[in-house]
Design a protein around this nucleic acid. Structure first.
Lengths: 155, 155
DNA sequence: CAACATAGTTTCATAATGCAACCACTGGAG
DNA sequence: CTCCAGTGGTTGCATTATGAAACTATGTTG
């Protein structure tokens, strides 16, 4: 077997995320879905991607519980793809990707849009990582701990 | 031309990020680099990936300014791959991916590690998005604004 | 029902991935 | 200096994924 390696059984949560949304198109589809796109044709024309690839990606994300098929919305007999809570939960990942470009892109003048606070119209701050008690954490303030073994039964 | 579509000229900063690190392996390589790995063989054996693929990815990330080639470190004549500031800036993206798995993964019992506050050993909070004035923002509190045209010269 | 739009699937060519084998250079041992 | 294992790749070939275009099956409109 020479299949593309799967991270499905991997214990690393980053690898597990990539398994679901780590391809070229999924995150862009989710970005458009967060903007309100729902129909196959909308995704296809907005993203300009091949229909067969779109078809595969949509099905995969439905299987992963990121999108769900909804029966209608405008009364027609067609279906729509709507984000589940898991799908909407991708939002911080998109913000992180966006901010990385905004900060480090070599051609920032090519970036078309900036994410702003709707109330003030001012750019949002960089994502912050905080401790339970509210302290702002830097990468060096964190570490990885083995997940505590959850007893499988018995209360 | 039937090449894989490139997002290089795209105005969307998310697409531009994906252009650089949106493939199956780059983010995992950066994750290991953040843990201190530097040598070709270290990445190869830790990630278990094919050497030719690793070679291509490392070169690509060097070209993108994410990694830099450093002449040594232990005195040997070999080279090392070290993260640039741009590379270390990927950290929030990895945290976001990790937290997405921690929150939504269908088999959370398979997740091996959790990210904790080093001082207290307690899990870190979810990444927070704040306005310039410190208000906590939800996705609905934000919007996209066209990037202000930067005058090209003259002061 | 004719004509058109939507939402795909199929076909075929090309590009990316993965494994294994091969090769160049390094660093020591003798 | 020579031999030889280890490091850091590259090359070749098979398989899989991607992409463009053509085709199909419904739905929808006049």
């Amino acid at each position: 077997m020479v299949k593309r390696t799967s991270f499905e059984g991997d214990g690393c949560p980053i690898a597990r995320s990539l398994e679901a949304i780590g391809d070229w198109w999924s995150l862009l589809i989710i970005r458009e879905a967060l903007f309100g796109l729902r129909r196959f044709g909308e995704f296809q024309s907005k993203l300009g991607m091949a229909k067969n690839i779109l078809s595969v990606r949509l099905r995969s994300m439905v299987d992963h519980g990121i999108l769900a098929l909804a029966p209608a919305s405008d009364g027609s007999a067609y279906q729509e793809y709507v984000l589940t809570p898991k799908g909407r939960g991708v939002y911080p990942i998109l913000v992180a990707l966006r901010q990385w470009s905004e900060e480090f892109d070599e051609h920032p003048e090519q970036i078309a849009t900036i994410l702003v606070d709707r109330a003030k119209g001012r750019p949002v701050k960089k994502l912050e990582m905080r401790a339970e008690d509210g302290r702002l954490l830097s990468p060096a303030d964190t570490m990885l701990k083995p997940r505590p073994a959850s007893r499988r039964r018995s209360a």
